[in-house]
Write a protein that binds this DNA or RNA. Structure first.
Lengths: 119, 119
DNA sequence: GAAACCCCTGGAGCGCGCTCCAGGTCAAGG
DNA sequence: CCTTGACCTGGAGCGCGCTCCAGGGGTTTC
């Protein structure tokens, strides 16, 4: 079973080493396995979860929500609830895309207006 | 010429009174006119500018950029440059919409994957 | 003219999400 | 061995964008 050093995990996940430690402290990552010397050894599972975390962070999910989601993940029986949360998040992402588009539309109108003033 | 009290300006603009004062301190608003008693009196022009500010903030423009934009606005001759900045911002907004959509797509794939695991 | 309310200033405080640091331990190459 | 570099911990610090506070003065209504 291959494992990854902190540097490798950072490289693969796209998070900094400090951020990985921070996420672990915050409970977003379950406690990472250690080598005999106390160094972290990330598993493929950890990296898989980090990939989802990255996706959720990039779409604006707050740390606190991520933490709650991670806590849910400790109990296998909550799978349906977790998927429901992801779908709820998906809806929020859609809303923020829609909101951005509306404001972008307004922005473009303003640009057009300035242009009409003779730019 | 109608003017607006701080409370009215907040109501119309959608920013809090504190935020309006903060923007003025930061130079995002030019110094607002005052009544004889020292109270602020916002003009329609101020509100028009605030409307653009709201649009730019909602689309993610940082305070520092807004400030630079506002400083440019002090010189009438920079109109073309300002419009260019707005267009540049419009491109960034487009990029962030595209990025959100890509991540949303990944999110949906993950949801579909979980569903296939039997949810 | 006084109660009730809005507004003023300067500055402190806060929530978020990291990021950095000191002072030490572990691991791999020569 | 010894050096070099990656890693450890606990905790402080930071950048952003507000938000709140104390202590005081305007203004409207009766």
């Amino acid at each position: 079973m291959t494992t990854y050093s902190p540097a490798q995990a950072a490289e693969v996940s796209g998070f900094s080493i400090d951020t990985l430690r921070y996420y672990e402290r915050e409970g977003i990552l379950r406690p990472i396995a250690r080598t005999s010397g106390g160094h972290r050894a990330y598993t493929e599972d950890d990296l898989g979860w980090l990939d989802l975390v990255h996706c959720l962070r990039d779409t604006g999910m707050p740390i606190a929500d991520l933490k709650r989601y991670a806590e849910l993940s400790l109990d296998e029986a909550t799978l349906a609830a977790r998927v429901a949360l992801l779908e709820e998040h998906d809806r929020r992402v859609q809303e923020s895309i829609d909101g951005l588009r509306r404001q972008q539309e307004r922005l473009r109108e303003k640009i057009a207006w300035y242009r009409k003033q003779g730019v």
